[in-house]
């Protein structure tokens, strides 16, 4: 074959290789729509953060800084004691985790390592139903069941409204999340590792605890962090069961009434804790929102660092 023969050009091929104008236009439109969606997310997030900052700064300007360190959180009286809310949030979250982490992890181990396929098919949907219970219902359950049946029996004389009942209610809400995220990560552990363990004469419990759980660490940590975020952010259970709307005294006693950041915000936003004419109470909402945002953000970063450090590739 002559080398020159292949050089002869086919003009129609050249056109075809350029593609159609309509196709190019469509590609551009799709690109623009996707970019728009991404930008929208960024812009909305930025706006939220900006408005939080703006509102928070306004609030700080309006009030006497001393009111941030008072005896309690009484926005109507102009007392904005922050440690009351932080303590309430930490207490409720801590109690919730004390319940949800062990129960969630044990359920995950059971579902992933012990349950037969049939049992799993029955139990998993039940877990999902639990996850779907509206939190206001759980708040009511905490107030009318957990509080009298458990808390008041544990410590007679406790008020119907108390942080322990609220914390346990939040814990129940958090169990399905922790269970299902950790179960997923345990099931992702390769069967070959389990076989190796059984092949060495390990029992099921040994294999679960010494091989599967460590190999699933990153997923379990992620589950716990998601659980913390869920618990810190939970509002309705606390608003119903902790007895803090209208204000709360500073306390670290779970048998007391108390208020959390989120529940305080709900009270403010719905007007329960608002006084006509006094705008600073309403402005404090932004300040609390910012605090919550920073707490969750730091938590997620810490979680990320931990997950990356302990991640084990198979």
């Amino acid at each position: 074959m002559q080398p020159g023969a292949s050089l002869r050009r086919d003009p129609s091929l050249a056109t075809a290789l350029r593609g159609t104008a309509a196709r190019h236009r469509r590609e551009r439109v799709i690109g623009a729509v996707l970019l728009g969606a991404a930008l929208l997310t960024v812009v909305v997030s930025a706006l939220i953060i900006l408005s939080l900052f703006g509102g928070a700064v306004d609030f700080i300007r309006q009030i006497d800084l001393g009111t941030l360190f008072a005896d309690g959180w009484y926005p109507r009286r102009g007392e904005f004691d922050l440690k009351t809310l932080v303590a309430g949030s930490l207490l409720v979250t801590g109690i919730a985790l004390l319940l949800a982490v062990p129960v969630g992890l044990l359920s995950a181990i059971y579902l992933s390592e012990y349950a037969s396929r049939r049992v799993r098919r029955i139990v998993k949907p039940i877990l999902e139903v639990l996850a779907g219970i509206p939190s206001v219902v759980l708040g009511f359950f905490a107030l009318t069941f957990i509080s009298p049946v458990f808390v008041q029996r544990l410590n007679p004389g406790t008020s119907d409204f108390n942080l322990l009942a609220a914390g346990l209610g939040v814990g129940i809400l958090t169990i399905p999340l922790i269970a299902s995220v950790s179960e997923d990560s345990m099931r992702a552990v390769p069967a070959a590792l389990r076989e190796a363990s059984y092949g060495l004469g390990a029992r099921r419990l040994t294999t679960s605890v010494k091989i599967v759980v460590p190999a699933a660490t990153s997923g379990i940590v992620a589950a716990v962090i998601l659980g913390i975020s869920r618990a810190i952010g939970e509002t309705m259970v606390v608003a119903v069961a902790a007895g803090g709307s209208g204000g709360a005294q500073f306390t670290v006693d779970p048998f007391h009434q108390g208020q959390t950041i989120t529940a305080a915000m709900a009270s403010l936003a719905t007007g329960t804790d608002r006084v006509a004419g006094a705008t600073s109470a309403f402005q404090s909402l932004f300040f609390l929102g910012l605090m919550l945002f920073i707490m969750t953000f730091v938590l997620n970063q810490l979680g990320d660092i931990f997950v990356r450090r302990t991640r084990q590739q198979y």
């Binding site: 070959a192 590792l193 076989e195 190796a196 059984y198 092949g199 060495l200 004469g201 190999a215 198979y314």
Partner: peptide, 20 residues
């Protein structure tokens, strides 16, 4: 069976060391 596997060990097709 656990007692059996302690006496009769196994090496698998794909190397499967623990992530330890």
């Amino acid at each position: 069976p656990v007692e059996v596997r302690r006496r009769i060990g196994m090496v698998f097709q794909k190397p499967n060391p623990f992530p330890k």
